[in-house]
Structures are given as structure tokens and as C-alpha cells.
């Protein structure tokens, strides 16, 4: 088994939504084969055994697909390794003796609930405003009745791979959710099924994003760099084009 490495952890602690936050230092020895969340599991086990308050953090699938986890490691949402969710970040990427700072995703729209846990429900509100195709369950036409070019379907899938973790917001200095919204807008804008509501959708989603307190985009590309799924910034451009088109064409004017 690989030899353990020793690390100093400075972890953000906050007892309740109202409490003041602070950093707490921990010294830990961990196998490089563990993921960073497994390291926290172990640390929590030790804390619980001493009847101390464990570190609250969220995770679920631990395979990088559910989007539940999200810790800012040394300033990077999901840590320093590109295209890697926090749960897939393994300790072999760190050196013996290193110091790590672990913080929650910070953004105006995300309330810090406890320690490393934040409330990302504003992202759901944006989807509820228009992130869907309005089709009831029933008898849609046969799935093969509309051929869709392979390339188009793959582009839509590239956009649809967003895991909704919200790291893009935490990475952005304006706490903008444009990459998240752009990805969903693009998925449907690319597909024939998404055309009927295309312009209403983009307006509804963008307006809700603004209402939720997310900032605007100033093209720093930080979101793309930190996205664990590598969602492309071109999705933002596509969204902006559609939004502009919607605004200048009177028939789809909603607001």
C-alpha cells in the first residue's frame, strides 16, 4: 500500500446559517489512494469518536455525475485538477507536508448553511422557469420520426452533460450562472424538439437568473476552466445570441 502523506487542513467552519464562519486547522495523515472526501470521512470519524462536531459537507454518487459535492480547494472550485469533481480528486495529487484550504462554494445567490454546505436551490428556480420542453406524458410521435444529425445530437449532449454542481458560479468573480443557464438553453436550442419555445425559454431563464441574484458575464472564462464536465463557453455565446434575437423580435417579446 502506498505510504501515507501528512497534510495541514484549514477547513471553513460555520455552525449555522446565522453564525460567523472561521477556519479551523487539522493535521492529518492520509493514504494517497483516498479521495479528498474519503479523507474527510476519516477525519469526521475521528472527530465523532472524540465527540467533536464533524465537518458538514455534501456528496452522494462519488463518481462525479450527481453534482452534489463541491468544495473550493486552495481557491479552485472542485480543486486544482481540471475536469474533476471534488469526489474524484485523489490525495495523490498533493505532496507530503502541503497545506490545503477547504472552503464552500461562495456566491451571493448561495447561502452558506453550515461548514462546507451551501444552498444552490436558485439554480432549480431557473430550470423551473423554462429549462424544459413542454410535452406531457402520453403519446409523442415515434422517437425516430424526427431524424437529428449525429453531430447535432452530440453537441446537445455536450451541453446536457452539465451536472448542476454550481461550480461555475463559485468560479466567477461576478458569481454569474451563465454557463449553467447557457448549457441548458443550448441543449434545447440545438434540437428540433426545442424550437417552438426557443425564444420564450431563453428570456424566462435569463430573467429568473437575474432575479435570483446571479451576476453578469464579463468573459473571464473562469467558469469553463473550473467546470468538472468541461462545459464549453460557446454555450454562453449561443444563449446571448438567442436572448438578443428574442428581445428584438416583437412576436416573442414577453416582458
Amino acid at each position: 500500500m502506498a505510504e501515507k502523506i501528512n497534510l495541514t487542513l484549514n477547513i471553513w467552519r460555520k455552525e449555522s446559517p446565522e453564525a460567523e464562519g472561521y477556519f479551523e486547522e487539522f493535521k492529518i495523515s492520509v493514504t494517497p489512494d483516498a479521495s479528498i472526501l474519503e479523507m474527510l470521512d476519516e477525519l469526521n470519524n475521528d472527530l465523532e469518536a472524540q465527540n467533536k462536531r464533524p465537518i458538514a459537507f455534501e456528496s452522494d454518487c462519488r463518481e462525479g455525475i450527481c453534482g452534489t459535492c463541491g468544495i473550493v480547494v486552495n481557491g479552485h472550485p472542485h480543486g486544482p485538477i481540471p475536469k474533476t469533481a471534488t469526489c474524484q480528486l485523489h490525495m495523490r495529487n498533493f505532496k507530503d507536508g502541503e497545506t490545503l484550504y477547504l472552503e464552500p462554494f461562495r456566491a451571493k445567490a448561495y447561502k452558506n448553511i453550515k461548514d462546507l454546505v451551501v444552498d444552490r436551490s436558485p439554480l432549480d428556480k431557473i430550470i423551473q422557469a423554462g429549462g424544459f420542453i413542454s410535452v406531457n406524458t402520453g403519446n409523442p410521435p415515434d422517437a425516430n420520426s424526427i431524424p437529428i444529425p449525429k453531430e447535432t445530437a452530440l453537441q446537445a449532449l455536450d451541453a446536457a452533460e452539465c451536472i448542476g454542481c454550481g461550480a461555475c458560479v463559485a468560479a466567477c468573480k461576478n458569481a454569474s450562472a451563465m454557463l449553467f443557464v447557457g448549457a441548458k438553453v443550448s441543449q434545447f436550442a440545438l434540437l428540433p424538439q426545442g424550437q417552438p419555445e426557443r425564444y420564450e425559454r431563453v428570456q424566462a431563464m435569463v430573467n429568473t437568473m437575474d432575479e435570483m441574484g446571479f451576476g453578469s458575464c464579463t468573459n473571464t472564462y473562469a467558469c469553463e476552466a473550473e467546470c468538472p464536465k468541461g462545459i464549453s463557453i460557446t454555450n454562453i455565446a449561443r444563449m446571448n445570441r438567442d436572448y438578443l434575437k428574442a428581445k428584438i423580435s416583437s412576436h416573442s417579446m414577453q416582458y
Binding site: F132, P140, P141, A143, P149, K150, A153, A156, L191, G194
Partner: peptide
């Protein structure tokens, strides 16, 4: 059929 109508991007042929 339902999933495709919802915009689920299944794999396709050329």
C-alpha cells in the same frame, strides 16, 4: 418516444 420528445440526446447514426 417520451424521452426523445423531452430533448434527451440519445446516440444517433449518421
Amino acid at each position: 418516444d417520451q424521452a426523445v420528445a423531452q430533448g434527451v440526446p440519445f446516440a444517433r447514426e449518421y
